[in-house]
Structure formats: structure tokens, C-alpha cells
């Protein structure tokens, strides 16, 4: 559906994006991950036809963005970093304006506006002036604007940035609802978001792709050790000794009856680890994976690519 080949963009001497290659298949939800200034927004702007690439090609359904801009743009719904809403318009008028801008015929505009309002749950504020809405609502109006033409492709640039946790959760739910109806390319630098929403991740740093796959595969490739949090009732010292003698255990941190165990998943499976703890008779009460491993993948990947450059 989206096919990016050898994409390069230079701003003067500075290279924002270097030889980017990736494809997004129809119906996929792909996360575009990278630190600030990695080239996410630039790539998205080129895909949407907002600006042209210095070299390389972007094709949507086989049509080149630069050669057939109008045809391609009618297939894309785009939400930039700042939602492109007119503060002096009412929500419903805004959506109708966007629908006409997208070239929809009069008889389907009404239905499409209702669809966009329903998906983004904005029915209650449709008669309100956009200026008076909170940031979260404005963001949703922006998403509704991207949705109103029912485009096959949705491109969302950091849709949850600057929102409070409840609004973030709502936007996430919304994107999950849209899964299957649209092909979604989503950029973010928040890792848990990617984990919650995306099937596939493209990690980009300094304008280059450094990893592209599902999260689990990336974790393996990045050789990030798995970390677990373990609570026990007794025999703390004995357990610590046993664990340290088990091959594949990299590190054991202890805080009273709480253990943080880091293992190398290639040497020791999670199953064998739990077996070892249970067999030690320490009275296992809790065993859960430590959640910050995503951050670790990210930091490992981005810093190692930095080192390569040095």
C-alpha cells in the first residue's frame, strides 16, 4: 500500500532522512518510532505530499506521490503534530469544510461527518467553537478531520503528544477501534504506545532505519536481556545462591523479599527460571516481567547506531 524507496531529504547541508526503504501493507498498523529529530515528521510529510523528497520515491497503491499528487492525497488522511483546526469554526462546520476540501460529493458528506463524529466520540461538542475546546478535544477534532473522507490510509504524527493520561488512553482506544478499517502509520516517541497499538515497528534514528519488525523480534535482535520481578516468602539467601549458580542468569538484585532477575533468554527460558524458583521451595507469590524492557531496546538501538556513526 505504502512503498518507500531510497527516500532522501536534505535541508541545505543537513540530511534529515537518508535512503529510507520500507513498505506498509494494506490493513497494517505500523509504528514509526524514534527520538526527537530522527526524521519521522519529515518522512510523513513526504508521504502525504506536503513536501517533495530530495531523491527517492514514495508510491501509494503504485502511484507516485510526486507524479500524481491529487490522486494520492485523496487516499490519505493526515494528522500533523499540531492538529490543523480553524479556531474560528464550529466542529461540524470544520468537518464539512474538510470533507468538501477532500472532494467528497454532497450526498455522502453528511454520512461521513456522522461516521467521523461517532468514531472520535465528538457528538456532544459538534456545535461548539473549536477555540473553546481543550487540547485533547482539538486533537480528536484533528483526527475526525483525517477520518472524514474515510481514507484507506491514515497517517498520524504523534497523536498523543501533550495530552493527559486519560486522553492518551482514549486516543489509543480510538486508534485500536480504527484498526482493520484503515491502514495506519503512526509516529511516536512513546514506547508503551507502540506496544499497545502497533503490529509492526519501524525504528528510525538520525534519518536511517535501524530496526524494522514486530516488537518481539526486535527485542530478540537487540539482544536485550529479559528482566523479571519476583516476590517470595522465605529462604531468600538460598534462592539468591541457587539463582547465581544457574547458567543464563545475568544479574540478581535483591530488596528484602523482592528479587529483580535478569536472564539471557537464549540460555535460559522463562519456564526453566520459574521451575527453578518453585523447586527451591522459597514460596513464590509473584512473578512478572519488568516493563521497562522496551525502553532498553530503544536506548540500545539508538545509542549503538550513534556509536557506529562515531
Amino acid at each position: 500500500m505504502i512503498n518507500v524507496k531510497q527516500l532522501t531529504k536534505n535541508y541545505g547541508d543537513r540530511c534529515a532522512v537518508k535512503n529510507l526503504n520500507f513498505t506498509v501493507k494494506s490493513g497494517e498498523v505500523v509504528g514509526f518510532l524514534g527520538p526527537n529529530g530522527a526524521g519521522k515528521t519529515t518522512t510523513m510529510k513526504i508521504i502525504t505530499g506536503f513536501m517533495a523528497a530530495s531523491s527517492g520515491q514514495v508510491c501509494i497503491d503504485g502511484d507516485d506521490v510526486y507524479e500524481h499528487p491529487l490522486k494520492v492525497k485523496s487516499k490519505i488522511g493526515y494528522l500533523p503534530e499540531t492538529p490543523p483546526v480553524y479556531n474560528d469554526m464550529y466542529v461540524k462546520d470544520y468537518l464539512s469544510f474538510v470533507a468538501k476540501l477532500k472532494g467528497l460529493s454532497k450526498n455522502i458528506i453528511g454520512g461521513n461527518i456522522d461516521y467521523a463524529l461517532e468514531q472520535t466520540q465528538l457528538q456532544d461538542v459538534k456545535g461548539r467553537l473549536i477555540k473553546n475546546l481543550s487540547k485533547g478535544f482539538k486533537q480528536r477534532v484533528g483526527i475526525a478531520g483525517a477520518l472524514v473522507s474515510k481514507p484507506p490510509i491514515l497517517i498520524l504524527d504523534e497523536p498523543t503528544v501533550g495530552l493527559d493520561p486519560r486522553q492518551v488512553a482514549e486516543i489509543r482506544k480510538l486508534i485500536i477501534r480504527l484498526r482493520g478499517k484503515h491502514t495506519i502509520l503512526l509516529s511516536t516517541h512513546i514506547l508503551s504506545e507502540v506496544q499497545a497499538i502497533c503490529e509492526r515497528v519501524i525504528i528510525i534514528n538520525k534519518g536511517e532505519i535501524i530496526a524494522e519488525d514486530s516488537l518481539a523480534v526486535i527485542a530478540k535482535k537487540a539482544s536485550v536481556a529479559s528482566k523479571f520481578e519476583v516476590d517470595i516468602l522465605r529462604k531468600e539467601d538460598e534462592l539468591q545462591k541457587t539463582l547465581l549458580n544457574t547458567p543464563g542468569v545475568l544479574e540478581v538484585e535483591r530488596n528484602g523479599q523482592k528479587f529483580y532477575i535478569q536472564i539471557n533468554p537464549e540460555q535460559l527460558s522463562t519456564e526453566s527460571l520459574t521451575k527453578a524458583i518453585v523447586n527451591s521451595g522459597a514460596g513464590l507469590t509473584q512473578f512478572k516481567p519488568s516493563m521497562n524492557y522496551l525502553e532498553k531496546i530503544f536506548i540500545n538501538l539508538t545509542t549503538s547506531s550513534d556509536h557506529k556513526e562515531l
Binding site: G49, F50, L70, K73, I76, Y78, T82, P84, L101, G103
Partner: peptide, 14 residues
């Protein structure tokens, strides 16, 4: 200034 320019430029109009 308000970035609504992005909307116009990414819409299927010349």
C-alpha cells in the same frame, strides 16, 4: 502560523 496550511497542502487540491 496555526498549521492549518498543512491541511490545505495535503488535501487533493492544487
Amino acid at each position: 502560523k496555526t498549521k492549518t496550511y498543512d491541511l490545505l497542502l495535503t488535501s487533493p487540491i492544487t
